[in-house]
Amino acid sequence: MSERLGFDHVTKIFEAPGSDTGFVAFDDITLEASPSEFLAIVGPSGCGKSTLLKMAAGLMPPTRGRVLLDGKPVFDPPPGVVYLFQQYAKSLFAWRTVIDNVMFPLEAAPRSQRNELREKCRDYLKQVGLSGFEDSYPWQLSGGMQQRVAIARALAADPQVLLLDEPFSAVDALTRMELQSLVLQLWERRKFTAILVTHDVEEAIFLADRVAVLGAKPTALKEIIDVGLPRPRDQLTTREDPRFLKLRHHLTSLLLARNPAHVAAV
């Protein structure tokens, strides 16, 4: 189950005190993720990538244009769209055990289903490799494990669209790779639509079907690149693939604002 999520001529202007025009975060962005697609959005730090994702989640309205979920405009957080925050520690409920954190999205369900749902949550924790930590508190776990809890909780909400807001930027390099593989695995199994925002070019290539590149301020869409690397992907072999390296070169030079065509030709 997955849905189409698109930005239709989206402009976001933040009101700045003392300025009539305000600060233009994006100008006229049109971009769409197809059902079950893994779309990555890369851009330099501070270009407002997270803002784009928050609009997609219905947490923030665009100034102009629309966010469309299966063709219907998004105003409030729609069902099936789940957000994975960069600051996982701040997104988890410190007063709940791991299993109760995962249960959170399911608590509106009738009481009679509770036990069944709890079993399901145990399974999600198993899927992210956290069996045995059900009754721990998040703050007793490492950063990588905390993000796994957040991922399990996202699974519990049965995502049709998963929004990933630099979810691996706060963990060490090895943990990051593990988490990337985990997300990829889950995506392949569940086939939700995934939109990843990151400043890590390799991460974008490794995970995504397509990579959208955002330019500097005011942010606009620079280019969309088809990755085309075979799946299933592997942290060692995929990253050594010459096509991977070529894409990395291309995207990095785009972000560094050099002339990509020239470099690519060399």
């Binding site: 947490l59 409030d76 957080p77 789940v82 957000y83 997104s91």
Partner: peptide, 13 residues
């Protein structure tokens, strides 16, 4: 209370 926490609750409707 961190805004992320409130937003987390919002995304879960």
């Amino acid at each position: 209370v961190d805004d992320t926490l409130i937003q987390t609750a919002r995304t879960f409707r």
